[in-house]
Amino acid sequence: MAQEIERQDFLALLRRKLTDTESLLDVGCGPCLILDDLPYAHIVALDIHRPYLLNRATKSGHVIPLNADAHAIGRLFVPNSFSAVSFVDSIEHFPKQEALDMLREAETIARKQVIVFTPRGFFPQENVDLYGLNGEVFQMHRSGWEPEEFERMGYEVTIMKGQHDRRNPVFVNTFGADHPPVDALLAIKNL
């Protein structure tokens, strides 16, 4: 059964749930905004949109940018290549079946954990790239997720109540400033 918590710092919650911080494959990393805040010794930051990687927020040596299509992770990486594979604000950018296929591949690539952070339900997003790097086609949301879907696949789910709200310009553009906040899901599968 999913645990519900009030809105809080996503990164602090995630750090508490990590089991092995040797290496991470971050799928759909965008401009790598949070990667310096994660305790992994080695991170491969994979994104299909090269401008995100060229303009990434971190130039840390432990973060290696890889310009590739997420659909190819099963061909790019052998089983047990990383301690963890994450999809932070990225799984919703894929149609449901494609995302499910990638999650299955991630479960073979990761030794310890597969991590997903995504809005709860369908959060419409199109024709927007908050980073101003012409990645609108890659930022479009194509699927929505509920806790039960992840639980059926063996993930432990934390519902972060009200995580998305008027502080997010895309939220305001999509729902309006007076819309009630939308929850987020942190789903982790320990392998």
Rank of each mutant, 00 (worst) to 15 (best):
S143C: 11
Y52W: 10
A72D: 15
M102N: 01
E136F: 03
E151F: 01
H42P: 02
V137E: 12
Y40R: 02
L76N: 05
F138H: 12
V137P: 05
A45W: 00
F123H: 10
K96G: 14
A68P: 00
E92V: 06
G135K: 03
S81G: 02
E149I: 10
L133M: 14
E105I: 03
P51Q: 14
S83T: 07
D37Y: 03
W145G: 05
V114H: 03
I73W: 01
T108I: 01
A84N: 10
L100T: 00
G61C: 14
E136W: 04
A41Y: 01
E156D: 15
E149V: 10
N134P: 06
A45M: 07
L66W: 00
P65W: 02
A41I: 07
L53D: 09
M153H: 13
L53I: 08
E151R: 00
I115L: 11
E126C: 06
R75H: 15
A99P: 08
L38W: 03
V63F: 00
E107S: 10
T118R: 02
G132E: 07
F82Y: 04
K96C: 14
A45V: 07
H62T: 04
S81F: 06
A41G: 15
E105R: 01
T118V: 08
V63Q: 00
E156P: 08
E151P: 03
E126M: 01
R104C: 14
E156I: 05
H93T: 06
E92T: 11
G154L: 04
I43Y: 00
Q125G: 12
L38R: 03
S83W: 08
H71I: 11
P124R: 02
N80Y: 07
M140G: 12
M153R: 14
R56S: 13
R104V: 09
F150N: 04
I43A: 06
T118K: 00
R50F: 14
N80G: 08
V114N: 09
V63I: 10
H93S: 13
G61V: 13
V157W: 02
V116R: 01
V85E: 00
E148F: 05
E136S: 09
Y40A: 05
E92H: 09
R75T: 13
H49K: 12
S83A: 12
A106C: 01
A68N: 05
S86T: 04
R111E: 07
R142P: 09
R56V: 05
R56I: 08
E126L: 05
V116P: 07
V114A: 09
F138P: 10
F123K: 09
V85I: 03
A41D: 15
L66A: 05
D47P: 00
N80F: 08
A110E: 03
G135S: 14
N134I: 08
D101R: 11
M140R: 14
A99C: 12
R75I: 13
K96I: 13
E146S: 12
S143N: 13
E98A: 04
F94S: 10
